[in-house]
């Protein structure tokens, strides 16, 4: 079971690592790194799903008639773009949070909100 489905295991492990970081880390930047790992696991999932056994890259060439499915790859290009945009926005937010609060640690943020 493990060998032929190893791509799924990679996805699951990465996903859980990412999810765990998002939940546990108090540092906003580290949270984002976790989020990024979380998203990346899904990218890998899509890309590996598109693989067809013994298929080559989806480029028309003589003597090749088994191709990998290009559609998931195309889809995930879009998703990667979306991910980058999200990350850029998130980082911008963190910078503004740092300016406004002087910290990027979740606990300190809450303390400072309570103080005022």
């Amino acid at each position: 079971m493990l060998p032929e489905l190893y791509n799924y295991w990679v996805v699951i492990v990465l996903m859980m690592i990412g999810f765990y970081i998002v939940i546990v880390q108090g540092n906003l930047i580290k949270k984002l790194i976790g989020l990024n790992i979380f998203q990346t696991s899904v990218f890998i999932f899509y890309i590996s799903v598109g693989k067809v056994a013994d298929g080559s890259a989806p480029i028309l060439a003589e003597g090749v008639d088994v191709y990998s499915n290009p559609l998931p790859h195309v889809l995930i290009l879009t998703a990667i773009v979306v991910g980058i945009a999200t990350m850029a926005l998130a980082l911008a937010l963190v910078i503004r949070i740092k300016n406004a609060y002087g910290t990027v640690e979740e606990e300190e943020l809450q303390e400072r909100d309570l103080q005022c």
Partner: peptide, 16 residues
């Protein structure tokens, strides 16, 4: 300034 914090939280949850 809490708006920033709220937006950040929403971003995390929304992205998940």
């Amino acid at each position: 300034r809490r708006a920033l914090w709220a937006a950040y939280q929403y971003l995390i949850v929304g992205t998940i």
